[in-house]
Simulated assay, not measured.
Amino acid sequence: MTIIGRPADWPATEAEALAVQDALRGRVVLDEPGPPPGAGLVTGVDVAYDDERDLVAAAAVVLDAATLDVVERATAVGRVAFPYVPGLLAFREIPAVLAALGRLTAGPGLVVCDGYGQAHPRRFGLASHLGVLTGLPVIGVAKNPFAFAYRPPEARRGATSPLLADGEEVGRALCTRAGVKPVFVSAGHRVDLDHAVAHTLRLSPRYRLPETTRHADALCRQALKEAVA
Protein backbone atom coordinates (compact mmCIF):
# COMPACT_ATOMS: atom_id res chain seq x y z
CA MET A 1 0.00 0.00 0.00
CA THR A 2 1.33 3.44 -0.94
CA ILE A 3 1.64 5.86 1.98
CA ILE A 4 0.90 9.44 0.98
CA GLY A 5 3.36 12.02 2.26
CA ARG A 6 2.56 15.53 3.36
CA PRO A 7 2.10 17.87 0.37
CA ALA A 8 5.17 19.99 -0.23
CA ASP A 9 3.28 23.27 0.13
CA TRP A 10 1.24 22.21 3.18
CA PRO A 11 1.29 24.53 6.23
CA ALA A 12 3.82 23.43 8.85
CA THR A 13 2.97 25.83 11.69
CA GLU A 14 -0.17 27.08 13.41
CA ALA A 15 0.42 30.59 12.06
CA GLU A 16 0.68 29.29 8.50
CA ALA A 17 -2.51 27.25 8.87
CA LEU A 18 -4.43 30.20 10.29
CA ALA A 19 -3.29 32.31 7.34
CA VAL A 20 -4.61 29.67 4.93
CA GLN A 21 -7.96 29.62 6.73
CA ASP A 22 -8.17 33.40 6.52
CA ALA A 23 -7.32 33.35 2.81
CA LEU A 24 -9.84 30.64 1.88
CA ARG A 25 -12.76 31.51 4.18
CA GLY A 26 -13.99 34.30 1.92
CA ARG A 27 -14.53 31.77 -0.88
CA VAL A 28 -17.18 29.79 1.01
CA VAL A 29 -20.61 29.83 -0.68
CA LEU A 30 -23.60 29.51 1.66
CA ASP A 31 -26.50 30.76 -0.47
CA GLU A 32 -26.92 27.74 -2.76
CA PRO A 33 -29.43 25.00 -1.91
CA GLY A 34 -27.23 22.22 -3.25
CA PRO A 35 -28.60 19.03 -4.78
CA PRO A 36 -32.11 17.92 -3.76
CA PRO A 37 -32.18 15.42 -0.86
CA GLY A 38 -32.61 11.89 -2.17
CA ALA A 39 -31.35 12.69 -5.67
CA GLY A 40 -28.14 11.68 -7.39
CA LEU A 41 -25.12 10.48 -5.45
CA VAL A 42 -23.90 11.32 -1.97
CA THR A 43 -20.47 10.51 -0.54
CA GLY A 44 -19.43 10.08 3.07
CA VAL A 45 -15.85 10.79 4.10
CA ASP A 46 -14.17 9.93 7.39
CA VAL A 47 -10.70 9.29 8.79
CA ALA A 48 -9.04 7.07 11.37
CA TYR A 49 -5.67 7.69 13.04
CA ASP A 50 -2.75 5.62 14.29
CA ASP A 51 -0.81 8.26 16.22
CA GLU A 52 1.99 5.89 17.19
CA ARG A 53 2.80 5.27 13.53
CA ASP A 54 1.87 8.81 12.43
CA LEU A 55 -0.71 7.48 9.96
CA VAL A 56 -4.18 8.59 8.91
CA ALA A 57 -6.54 6.51 6.79
CA ALA A 58 -9.29 8.23 4.83
CA ALA A 59 -12.35 6.61 3.30
CA ALA A 60 -14.84 7.87 0.72
CA VAL A 61 -18.03 5.85 0.26
CA VAL A 62 -20.49 6.77 -2.50
CA LEU A 63 -24.16 5.97 -1.98
CA ASP A 64 -27.17 6.21 -4.25
CA ALA A 65 -29.02 9.04 -2.51
CA ALA A 66 -32.44 7.53 -3.26
CA THR A 67 -31.82 3.94 -2.11
CA LEU A 68 -28.78 4.47 0.15
CA ASP A 69 -27.11 1.51 -1.56
CA VAL A 70 -23.32 1.64 -1.79
CA VAL A 71 -22.11 2.51 -5.30
CA GLU A 72 -18.34 2.74 -4.78
CA ARG A 73 -15.65 2.79 -2.08
CA ALA A 74 -12.15 4.26 -2.01
CA THR A 75 -9.45 4.67 0.62
CA ALA A 76 -6.09 6.37 1.04
CA VAL A 77 -3.48 6.15 3.79
CA GLY A 78 -1.03 8.94 4.49
CA ARG A 79 1.25 10.51 7.02
CA VAL A 80 -0.50 12.83 9.46
CA ALA A 81 -0.02 16.18 7.76
CA PHE A 82 -0.23 18.55 10.73
CA PRO A 83 0.09 18.54 14.54
CA TYR A 84 -3.04 18.32 16.68
CA VAL A 85 -4.35 21.86 17.22
CA PRO A 86 -8.04 22.43 18.09
CA GLY A 87 -9.74 24.28 15.24
CA LEU A 88 -7.12 23.14 12.72
CA LEU A 89 -8.00 19.46 12.43
CA ALA A 90 -8.73 19.81 8.72
CA PHE A 91 -5.02 20.27 8.08
CA ARG A 92 -4.38 16.80 9.52
CA GLU A 93 -7.00 15.10 7.37
CA ILE A 94 -7.52 16.83 4.05
CA PRO A 95 -4.55 15.41 2.08
CA ALA A 96 -5.70 11.83 2.72
CA VAL A 97 -9.37 12.73 2.15
CA LEU A 98 -8.53 14.38 -1.19
CA ALA A 99 -6.57 11.29 -2.21
CA ALA A 100 -9.49 9.01 -1.38
CA LEU A 101 -11.93 11.23 -3.28
CA GLY A 102 -9.53 11.29 -6.21
CA ARG A 103 -9.70 7.50 -6.48
CA LEU A 104 -13.44 7.48 -7.07
CA THR A 105 -14.79 6.93 -10.56
CA ALA A 106 -18.39 7.75 -9.61
CA GLY A 107 -19.79 10.95 -8.16
CA PRO A 108 -19.09 12.13 -5.62
CA GLY A 109 -22.16 14.39 -5.67
CA LEU A 110 -22.87 15.84 -2.25
CA VAL A 111 -20.09 15.15 0.29
CA VAL A 112 -20.90 14.55 3.96
CA CYS A 113 -18.05 15.02 6.44
CA ASP A 114 -17.87 13.62 9.94
CA GLY A 115 -17.12 17.07 11.34
CA TYR A 116 -17.95 20.74 11.05
CA GLY A 117 -18.42 23.41 8.45
CA GLN A 118 -19.64 26.79 9.71
CA ALA A 119 -19.89 25.43 13.26
CA HIS A 120 -16.23 26.26 13.81
CA PRO A 121 -14.52 29.05 15.80
CA ARG A 122 -13.38 30.71 12.55
CA ARG A 123 -16.37 29.49 10.47
CA PHE A 124 -14.09 27.28 8.41
CA GLY A 125 -14.16 23.67 9.54
CA LEU A 126 -13.35 20.59 7.50
CA ALA A 127 -16.58 20.68 5.46
CA SER A 128 -16.00 24.28 4.38
CA HIS A 129 -12.30 23.74 3.74
CA LEU A 130 -12.89 20.62 1.66
CA GLY A 131 -15.69 22.31 -0.27
CA VAL A 132 -13.59 25.32 -1.20
CA LEU A 133 -10.65 23.16 -2.32
CA THR A 134 -12.79 20.83 -4.45
CA GLY A 135 -15.69 23.06 -5.49
CA LEU A 136 -18.10 20.33 -4.35
CA PRO A 137 -21.22 20.79 -2.24
CA VAL A 138 -20.23 19.68 1.28
CA ILE A 139 -21.96 19.53 4.66
CA GLY A 140 -20.71 18.64 8.13
CA VAL A 141 -22.47 16.27 10.51
CA ALA A 142 -20.72 15.98 13.86
CA LYS A 143 -21.31 13.77 16.87
CA ASN A 144 -20.61 16.54 19.40
CA PRO A 145 -21.41 20.29 19.52
CA PHE A 146 -17.77 21.48 19.83
CA ALA A 147 -17.80 24.67 21.92
CA PHE A 148 -21.18 26.07 20.90
CA ALA A 149 -24.31 26.55 22.97
CA TYR A 150 -27.62 24.87 22.20
CA ARG A 151 -30.84 23.74 23.81
CA PRO A 152 -31.58 20.06 23.18
CA PRO A 153 -34.25 19.68 20.50
CA GLU A 154 -37.47 17.82 21.20
CA ALA A 155 -36.94 14.06 21.41
CA ARG A 156 -38.74 13.35 18.14
CA ARG A 157 -37.30 12.60 14.74
CA GLY A 158 -36.80 15.76 12.70
CA ALA A 159 -36.79 18.18 15.62
CA THR A 160 -34.04 20.81 15.59
CA SER A 161 -32.60 23.58 17.71
CA PRO A 162 -30.04 26.24 16.78
CA LEU A 163 -26.34 25.84 17.50
CA LEU A 164 -25.25 29.31 18.58
CA ALA A 165 -22.03 31.32 18.71
CA ASP A 166 -22.47 34.80 20.20
CA GLY A 167 -26.11 34.73 19.14
CA GLU A 168 -25.35 33.66 15.57
CA GLU A 169 -26.78 30.38 14.27
CA VAL A 170 -23.81 28.40 12.99
CA GLY A 171 -25.54 25.02 12.78
CA ARG A 172 -28.39 22.96 14.18
CA ALA A 173 -28.79 20.13 16.61
CA LEU A 174 -30.94 17.55 14.81
CA CYS A 175 -32.82 14.64 16.34
CA THR A 176 -32.55 11.81 13.82
CA ARG A 177 -34.15 9.18 16.10
CA ALA A 178 -36.75 9.65 18.81
CA GLY A 179 -35.23 9.50 22.27
CA VAL A 180 -31.63 9.54 21.01
CA LYS A 181 -29.18 12.44 21.45
CA PRO A 182 -28.90 14.73 18.43
CA VAL A 183 -26.26 15.14 15.77
CA PHE A 184 -24.87 18.57 14.92
CA VAL A 185 -25.30 19.75 11.35
CA SER A 186 -23.60 22.71 9.71
CA ALA A 187 -23.32 24.03 6.19
CA GLY A 188 -19.93 23.60 4.57
CA HIS A 189 -19.92 24.91 1.01
CA ARG A 190 -22.56 25.31 -1.74
CA VAL A 191 -25.35 23.94 0.50
CA ASP A 192 -27.40 26.10 2.85
CA LEU A 193 -28.22 25.05 6.41
CA ASP A 194 -31.87 24.15 5.75
CA HIS A 195 -30.84 21.73 3.00
CA ALA A 196 -27.94 20.38 5.06
CA VAL A 197 -30.46 19.41 7.75
CA ALA A 198 -32.82 17.89 5.17
CA HIS A 199 -30.00 15.81 3.68
CA THR A 200 -28.92 14.58 7.11
CA LEU A 201 -32.43 13.48 8.03
CA ARG A 202 -32.87 11.74 4.67
CA LEU A 203 -29.56 9.91 5.14
CA SER A 204 -30.47 8.72 8.66
CA PRO A 205 -33.56 6.52 8.26
CA ARG A 206 -32.68 3.99 10.98
CA TYR A 207 -29.73 5.12 13.07
CA ARG A 208 -28.51 8.27 14.79
CA LEU A 209 -25.70 8.83 12.28
CA PRO A 210 -26.14 9.21 8.52
CA GLU A 211 -25.52 6.10 6.45
CA THR A 212 -22.72 7.97 4.70
CA THR A 213 -20.85 8.39 7.98
CA ARG A 214 -21.53 4.85 9.14
CA HIS A 215 -20.09 3.35 5.95
CA ALA A 216 -17.10 5.70 5.80
CA ASP A 217 -16.28 5.17 9.48
CA ALA A 218 -16.19 1.39 9.08
CA LEU A 219 -14.12 1.57 5.90
CA CYS A 220 -11.45 3.97 7.19
CA ARG A 221 -10.97 1.82 10.29
CA GLN A 222 -10.58 -1.25 8.10
CA ALA A 223 -8.09 0.55 5.85
CA LEU A 224 -6.02 1.65 8.84
CA LYS A 225 -6.02 -1.86 10.29
CA GLU A 226 -4.79 -3.28 6.99
CA ALA A 227 -2.12 -0.57 6.66
CA VAL A 228 -0.54 -1.38 10.02
CA ALA A 229 -0.91 -5.17 9.83
Rank of each mutant, 00 (worst) to 15 (best):
E32P: 01
R190Q: 06
V111K: 11
D114G: 06
Y207P: 00
L136H: 14
T105E: 13
L163P: 01
D51G: 02
V112M: 08
A57E: 06
A127E: 12
A58F: 02
R172K: 14
V62M: 04
A90R: 02
V170Y: 02
L136Q: 09
A74K: 08
G115P: 02
G107N: 04
Y49A: 04
R208F: 05
D194R: 15
P153N: 14
A100L: 07
A58P: 01
E226N: 09
A155K: 14
S186Y: 04
R6L: 13
T160C: 10
G171C: 10
D31R: 11
G5M: 07
R157K: 14
I139T: 06
L164M: 15
V20L: 15
L126M: 14
L101M: 09
G140D: 03
T134Q: 11
V85D: 08
G131R: 03
R123K: 13
V77W: 01
Q222M: 11
P153E: 11
A48M: 09
D114T: 08
L209Q: 13
R103C: 07
L68E: 00
P11I: 09
A100D: 05
T176V: 13
I3D: 01
Y150A: 01
R53S: 11
D46L: 14
T105L: 00
T105M: 00
Q21T: 05
V141I: 02
A19W: 12
D51K: 08
